[in-house]
Design a binder for these strands. Structure first.
Length: 350
DNA sequence: AATCCGTGGGG
DNA sequence: TCCCCAAGGAT
């Protein structure tokens, strides 16, 4: 490691000490001075929630989870339906299923203590290279490279890496390791991410106020905003489908839980057809179905979806009691279906 | 290794 | 409106 690279950590930590963002899972500088350590449970929970998800979106979810399940043993004792309902709206629902799996492994097989190295953390469900590194660095001071999308951007600019992502990932990880200090590696990782989120942004980076401007190759070459290079993305097709909202006379709701695998796996929702270019109607029961005026439009990671929504009054054995149903327990797509159903011209019960 | 997985905000 | 993208992981 050359002196220039060591200087990056020093400059960055100085900036971080003056500019660290306040977040519910971070230990405040005052508490840190009193010797308070980050809680591995809260670091783990926050890092899983933050996977591909903005800080703003995570905040309230984190508060609700930690209020309801203050430690890993409490979470391990939760029912999967309760966890899915609490996660509803946050997206990427495999994270919620793996979160509970991981909590149960840690609580039941590890005495409630998380592994203390990145290598061992990564063996747990839902913990990959990034999350393992983040927990190890922040909670256990392991000087490991922590590489998320922010760090990829910051490092590709610092060293003017021209290789497009994702092929550049190993090179960026290696470069990150070279500038990661052995002291305060967790603060360094969080500082890199804060820098990427607030100054070294994807578009219009604020190089003029960047603490690393003197170390940045891309800035000196005038190409900071052009990095990192990325491969072109494929276009998103549009799929169609039908969704069915049935209530009985008491106002109970016909719901179904989706299988664990695939889109919206393990979440609660309304029955419906397949989603495809030419879906076949698939009402869950025979009744006087009325179509809502409003269609539901929703965009997933890799396709657009347009749903036609039908409503009816009917009787059946497997309705969810009205008092047990809350739209907030549904993923966003199904909340949209519910909202569209409210504006429909409902048939009267027979 | 390429694909599959949500959602909301910003430009 | 549309595209980008955000503290990625599993398969």
């Amino acid at each position: 490691m050359c002196d220039g690279k060591g200087a990056i950590g020093k400059s960055l930590l100085k900036w971080y000490d003056a500019n660290a963002r306040v977040m519910p899972w971070r230990v405040s500088p005052q508490d840190r001075a009193l010797g308070v350590r980050p809680d591995p449970y809260r670091i783990w929970l926050s890092e899983v929630m933050l996977q591909q998800t903005t800080v703003a979106a995570v905040r309230d979810y984190f508060r609700r989870f930690t209020a309801r399940w203050p430690d890993v043993e409490a979470l391990a004792g939760a029912e999967v339906g309760a966890v899915m309902a609490e996660w509803a709206g946050l997206g990427y629902y495999a994270r919620a299923r793996n979160l509970l799996k991981c909590a149960r492994v840690v609580a039941h097989e590890m005495g409630g203590r998380f592994p203390q190295t990145a290598a061992d953390l990564q063996k747990l469900p839902g913990i990959g290279p990034y999350t393992a590194g983040a927990i190890a660095a922040i909670a256990y001071d392991e000087p490991v490279a922590v590489v998320d999308g922010n760090v990829e951007r910051v490092v590709s600019r610092l060293f003017a890496v021209q290789t497009p992502l994702p092929a550049a990932k190993p090179e960026l990880t290696d470069l990150t390791a070279q500038i990661t200090p052995t002291t305060r590696p967790g603060d360094f990782a969080q500082a890199m991410m804060d820098l990427g989120a607030t100054i070294c942004t994807p578009r219009n980076p604020a190089c003029a106020i960047c603490p690393l401007i003197a170390d940045c190759a891309a800035q000196s070459q005038g190409i900071a905003a052009d990095l990192p290079r990325k491969l072109a993305k494929k276009p998103k097709p549009t799929r169609l489908g039908f969704a069915y909202v049935a209530l009985n006379a008491a106002g109970d709701v016909l719901l179904e839980r989706r299988p664990d695998k695939g889109l919206l796996g393990g979440t609660l929702g309304f029955p419906g057809s397949e989603w495809s270019e030419v879906p076949a109607p698939a009402p869950p029961l025979q009744s006087d179905w009325r179509e809502a005026e409003a269609e539901v439009r929703h965009t997933f990671t890799h396709f657009h979806l347009i749903l036609r929504v039908f409503v009816t009054r009917a009787e059946g054995a497997d309705f969810t009691p009205r008092g047990d149903f809350a739209p907030g327990d549904l993923p966003t797509l199904m909340r949209k279906v519910w909202d569209a159903a409210q504006s429909a011209d409902w048939p009267q019960p027979e």
